[in-house]
Nucleic acid binder design. Sequence first.
RNA 1: GCGCCCGUAGCUCAGUAGGAUAGAGCACGGGAUUCCUAAUCCCGGGGUCACAGGUUCGAAUCCUGUCGGGCGCACCA
Length: 582
Amino acid sequence: MNAFDSLADLVRSALERLIADGALPAGLPLDSVQVEPPRDPAHGEAATNAALLLAKPARLAPMELAERLAAQLRSAPEVVEAAAARPGFVNLRLVPAFWLRAVHAALELGADYGRVDLGRGRPVNVEYCSANPTGPLHVGHGRGTVFGDALANLLAYTGWKVTREYYVNDAGAQIETLARSVHLRYREALGEAIGPIPEGLYPGEYLVPVGRALAESEGPRWRDRPEAEWLPLFARRAVEAMLARIRDDLAALGVHHDLFRSERELVETGAVDEALAFMEKKGLLYTGTLPAPKGKPVEDWEPVPQLLFRATAFGDDTDRPLKRSTGHWTYFAADIAYHLDKWRRGFDRMIDVWGADHGGYVKRMQAAVKAFSDGRASLEIRLCQLVNLLDGGKPLRMSKRAGRIVTLRDVVDEVGKDVFRFMMLTRRNDAPLDFDLVEVTQQSKDNPVFYVQYAHARIRSVFRHAAEQDLPGSARALLDAPLARLSDPAELALVRAVAAWPRTVRAAAEQSEPHRIAFYLQELAALFHALWTRGKEMPDLRFLVAEDRPLTLARLALLEAVRTVLATGLGLLGVTPVEELH
RNA sequence: GCGCCCGUAGCUCAGUAGGAUAGAGCACGGGAUUCCUAAUCCCGGGGUCACAGGUUCGAAUCCUGUCGGGCGCACCA
């Protein structure tokens, strides 16, 4: 049990005793009681809002209730001080031994210290990246990819059975465009002068090798044939090549999906027809004509009857078309089939990570999931805002037409996956992010990842020195260290930060907010660096004290606990905890 | 016009399920290095939490409106 959970239990049992004594009425909602670290450390080491929450149902003034609770809590052996504070908090100070349990737990549990079983083994599907296979990943994709990956890590760590999934949009007009673009490169590889890439085709150089490979394996036989004959082949080969490249880019970021699900396959195997027939049978579809769109006038708009989904019955703003005037399924229809497919594979919890430019799509997708599952499946959609690429403070304009795309791979190769991942995660996903190529390539202290990694490296450094002095270095060997010797305020602050790790994990997982892990790690690193420097100023506080082996063991135990938490936290973010920095 | 997201220090951002005197980094000013890595640390100035109402013991946080910014708005993906 982690520190703050056990404090909440302590407070609840104190309240129960007050109820038993008749000092409080029965039937109070004790579950809502929380114990948290107070914002201002001067208030104490932990604080509960119990009296504020329960004052009304207990028909007591908050301060009166707080006083009674504080008096009751003072009798607990762990409690050194319990004080009521206006408007009704109860502030607690605990015996150091209470907090030191967390250090012991970290040593004992290692990477499992902080793990909480929120998921109880239930399955969750996290779909992220899912970039169209028409080109390499760019920096904007990188953000959602890193976010989704860290979120998946976090859910797996908290007891969920996670499947990481990539939806491949390998059907539709864009793929035909891709195939035509590759055909042009194919002709080029056969020696033809193709001139400038025509409007409407993909100009990127990355298609050159795809065309060359086709020229080598196929020869010139498709050069002058009608499009209908070569298009499927070229589309398939192009998508394969792009996907291979995307997987490679993902691997460079440390991202590995469990499943790549193909849209084309859903269409070709009849899964879309089947899914929509399922919707039809539930009475969710009808044929009708949508009103003209409200915004900027659409030039070629004309009222046509279409097959529609009753999205408005499930919270969307308008009903949504499922079939195009050509008779083909819309993207949305295939997406419904895909999510139905997920649900049937056993996922009643699904999380999609999308770019903010798909924000207009959220309601209809959630409406569809609600509709086909009769409300039994949940779809959470996390939108990642855009990344503003800057070059030395100046906005870098990316133009697909000019072929001037800053690829994810370029940036990752330049700054490293650790820096990229950490930078993407030190911000809430729903706020835009400035990513300055100059700033992050400088690998200066502007990169918070170094700050955290440096803390880890420094701890490893201490242990290298400890090994030279014949001191134990493993967590197991430090389990019996006399932790009670830790007494300096800077040491105890670090101990309490270690104790706060499990609740940080829980909050981050429950809110789907991996950035909380990143911020916590920076705080933990800051407390460690501060202690380190105090040791420079006051030799008594150095970690390795030659003449006092028990004290040294206690400090090494604390350092190992901190290191464990740093390594675990960095691991959740997908960042490598380094042994040393140079 | 409608929908979603955002607005917190000069800049970039946190703010833990409504809690106490709103925090950190950068930048700026001052200081610390014979000693476990100074890529670090310590001290300081900096704020009408866009604005106006509302809900209540209490609001940066929840609700309504206004202003400002971003994204999106049949038959593309």
